[in-house]
Simulated scan of single mutants.
Amino acid sequence: MSQNNSRATIDETTKFLFDAPGSAIIDLITRLFPIDFTRDSEIVRLSSECISHPGFSRSLPDIVFQVRDSNGANSFIHIEVQTEHDGMMDLRMVKYGYLIGASRSRFDHDKCRVIEIPHQVVMYLEEHKRIRDELKVRIILPDDTIVHYTVPVFKLYSYTARELGEMNLYLVIPLVLVKYRKRFETLCRQKNLNREEFDAIVRDVLQDVEEIISISGKCEDKGVMDEQTKDVILSATMELYNQLHQKYIQDNASREKVENMIESVTQKISKKWHQIGIEEGAEQGKIEEARNIARNLIMLGMEDEFIKKATGLSGDEIRRLKI
């Protein structure tokens, strides 16, 4: 798997995570920004395709949300997820902030165009010594007015899955698996592979997968996350593990262990939906939920056998969903 393919998989999985239910997005935003939103605030996902401007390249922001609170006030949130260090990230964030603001600019009572810059953060997934705690740009206007443009940085790679769970950042815990890509690459570039160190990294990966599953279960039991959010997290976890497995781990026993851990949880969810459907006389609605999970797993490239076990749907039903 090439670096570009690997990065594309990470990008797609990240976007998949941010398609989770609104309450999970609100929990994440209120931990990353000093903003007090209630969990029933309305989340509107803005397509990057509409955030553009003549003269700029097609490089567009990653995740942009509009949040409407109970008082009707609007806030705009921009989260840029970055795998590797980028020395131009400070300029990119200024550009993205302007584009997002310009796409919703308005005129005030003095006929002056108003551009509001969104709340922004850069989330780094892989460690690099040059990553700073915040990005700073000093903009000097012709009249010597100075504008300080500062964007906070969240170093996700510096936290364990457990720590992210304790911080209520449960939605992004699958992304802790990305940091192992660099550890594997560094080790595999050595002339003589240190097998003990390689096996230790594999154990760390499996331990993190197990921790992610455990955190998801605890959050669901506490009512912090719903079943749909849990499914999104587990599906993303499986996809990121598959990427590590195909390129580095390549051990069937490890893959089987991960699949069994995740299948055991998804089977419980499927069984629970089935029982609720019978008890409430709403089995059809639960089947549709299972189909939605299957569609997500299909989008992530999961094998039919895994989807069957995870959802309880038949092979014919899964094939129809692919059409």
Rank of each mutant, 00 (worst) to 15 (best):
Q3A: 07
N4K: 08
N5G: 08
S6I: 11
S6N: 09
D11M: 01
T14H: 00
F16D: 09
F16H: 13
L17S: 11
L17C: 13
L17H: 13
F18M: 11
D19R: 15
D19G: 15
S23D: 14
I26G: 08
I26Y: 14
I29R: 03
L32V: 05
L32F: 04
P34Y: 15
P34H: 10
T38P: 02
R39T: 10
S41C: 13
S41E: 03
E42N: 12
E42F: 09
I43Q: 09
V44G: 00
S47N: 09
S47C: 00
S47V: 03
C50E: 08
I51F: 02
P54R: 13
R58T: 09
R58F: 15
P61N: 08
P61D: 02
F65C: 12
Q66D: 11
D69E: 14
N74P: 09
S75F: 12
H78N: 15
I79G: 00
I79F: 07
E80F: 03
V81W: 00
G87C: 03
D90R: 11
R92Q: 10
K95F: 00
G97W: 02
I100T: 04
D110G: 12
V114L: 10
E116N: 13
E126I: 11
E127G: 00
E127T: 00
H128C: 03
D133Y: 04
D133N: 15
E134L: 08
L135G: 09
L135Y: 10
V137Q: 08
I139C: 03
I140L: 10
I140R: 12
I140G: 01
T145R: 05
S158N: 13
Y159F: 15
Y159P: 04
A161H: 01
A161N: 05
R162N: 11
E163I: 08
L164P: 01
E166N: 12
M167E: 12
N168M: 10
L169Q: 12
L169G: 07
Y170C: 10
I173L: 15
L177Q: 03
V178C: 05
Y180F: 14
R181W: 00
F184Q: 04
F184I: 03
F198Y: 06
F198T: 03
D199L: 10
A200Q: 13
I201F: 07
L206C: 04
Q207W: 15
S216L: 03
K218G: 02
K218Y: 13
E220Y: 06
V224F: 14
E227H: 05
K230M: 01
D231L: 01
M238R: 01
Q243I: 05
Q250H: 10
N252M: 12
A253Q: 11
R255H: 11
R255W: 06
E256Q: 12
V258Q: 02
E259D: 11
I262M: 03
V265H: 06
Q267F: 09
K272N: 08
Q275D: 14
I276T: 07
I278K: 07
E279S: 13
E280K: 14
G281Y: 12
E283N: 14
E283R: 15
G285A: 04
K286Y: 15
K286I: 14
A290K: 14
A290S: 05
I298T: 05
I307R: 00
K309N: 07
K309A: 04
A310H: 02
T311K: 08
L313A: 07
D316Q: 14
I318W: 14
R320H: 10
K322H: 02
K322V: 00
K322F: 06
